[in-house]
Simulated scan of single mutants.
Amino acid sequence: MRLKKMERQQLLVEKIEETPFITDEELANYFNVSVQTIRLDRLELAIPELRERIKSVATNQWNETVKSLPLDEVIGDIIDLELDRRAISIMKIQSEQVFSRNKIARGHHLFAQANSLAVAVIDDELALTRKSEIKFKRQVKLNEQVVAKAEVKEVKEDGITVVHVNSFVKNEVVFSGIFHMYRSSEKEK
């Protein structure tokens, strides 16, 4: 059963407040309308598109928390962060990030997202990549959304922190890396 426009828009506001990172496509399926209808509803309600909602949440929430680099230098948008424990960022693959011939993402963008997240999760003023071991598991294509999840595995006495990062498209691992990060101060184990 189709909802009337005002009812749908009221529920749209509630759904986006409840799930701020929901895509227009997911909303269209949820409300059984076209993507264009969702976009028009958002426009009328002055609700920004997904990327802007993510940036707004990230800027407001993480700007004061990330110590090791300016937030605008993180590749992707941080959506969760607990310093020296874990972090999550998301990045939608844009046309400038793919090879024009086959629309496959250039690997350095996936590496940059994972590496900058490994830096951002460090609770220190200075964090640099000392060494990394990476694996590309499958190709990532134009418009796919990559979710990178970083987890601090070990904080060593010599100032090295080991961070594991796995990147996913939907629930499939597309990239994994182990980053050995140098930090300027030594932390207790």
Rank of each mutant, 00 (worst) to 15 (best):
N60R: 12
E7P: 02
V163M: 14
K149F: 00
K55F: 13
K187G: 08
I88G: 00
N143Y: 15
E96I: 05
K67P: 03
R8W: 01
S185C: 04
R183F: 03
N102K: 11
I160T: 14
E17Q: 14
A148E: 01
S116I: 01
T129F: 11
G76Y: 00
K67T: 00
E188A: 11
V57C: 08
L45Y: 06
I78R: 10
L81S: 07
A105N: 03
A127T: 03
K170Y: 06
S167W: 10
Q94T: 02
I104R: 08
A87N: 03
P70Q: 05
D124F: 02
K135G: 06
N143P: 09
N32T: 05
D84Y: 11
V66I: 15
L83K: 08
R39T: 06
I93H: 11
T19Q: 13
E157R: 14
V163L: 14
L117E: 11
V33G: 13
E52P: 01
V162A: 10
S167R: 04
R42Q: 14
R51L: 13
G159C: 09
L110V: 05
G107F: 04
V155K: 15
G159W: 08
D41R: 10
E25I: 09
R53T: 02
S56D: 14
E144W: 08
E26K: 14
L40H: 11
V98A: 10
K103M: 13
L27G: 10
A87L: 09
T59R: 12
L69K: 06
E49S: 12
E17C: 05
E44T: 09
R130G: 15
K149R: 15
